[in-house]
């Protein structure tokens, strides 16, 4: 897939990397600034996780080139995401059961 890369093509990639870099730095400082506002626990968690998800997506899409990847990898990752979400909700399910008891 990466056998032939024209100079302009790589140059375009490099520009994207730099833009993503600046965005990641900016979002890091935003997330620290928000944490210093001492918002409520719920708002803090939601905001921090939203920013982390944006940063994570930037890394995955551009540095890991997921923006243009093969179908099989998307398939494998979709499966991973489904299981990951399951894993995150496992404690919630457990808590509901605990409350019901």
């Amino acid at each position: 897939m990466h056998q032939e890369h024209s100079a302009e093509e790589v140059q375009k990639h490099v520009r994207t990397y730099l833009v993503v870099f600046v965005m990641l730095l900016a979002l890091t400082f935003v997330t620290v600034a928000i944490s210093r506002l001492h918002l409520g626990v719920f708002q803090s968690i939601v905001l921090a996780l939203i920013i982390a998800c944006i940063k994570g997506s930037l890394v995955a899409l551009f540095f890991m080139h997921l923006i243009s990847e093969k179908k099989l990898i998307y398939g494998a990752l979709a499966l991973t995401v489904a299981f990951f979400i399951g894993l995150m909700f496992l404690p919630v399910g457990q808590m509901i059961t605990a409350v019901a008891l």
Binding site: M1, K70, A76, T80, F84, L87, M88, P91
Partner: peptide, 30 residues
């Protein structure tokens, strides 16, 4: 697959890593 074996291999490995860290994040929530 349209992929080299190494590329497919690393993504499957990273998928397993997601579950490894996922288990610990889940532990954190609990």
């Amino acid at each position: 697959t349209g992929l080299t074996n190494a590329k497919l291999g690393i993504w499957l490995f990273l998928a397993s890593e997601v579950m490894l860290f996922g288990a610990l994040f889940s532990t954190y929530i609990v």
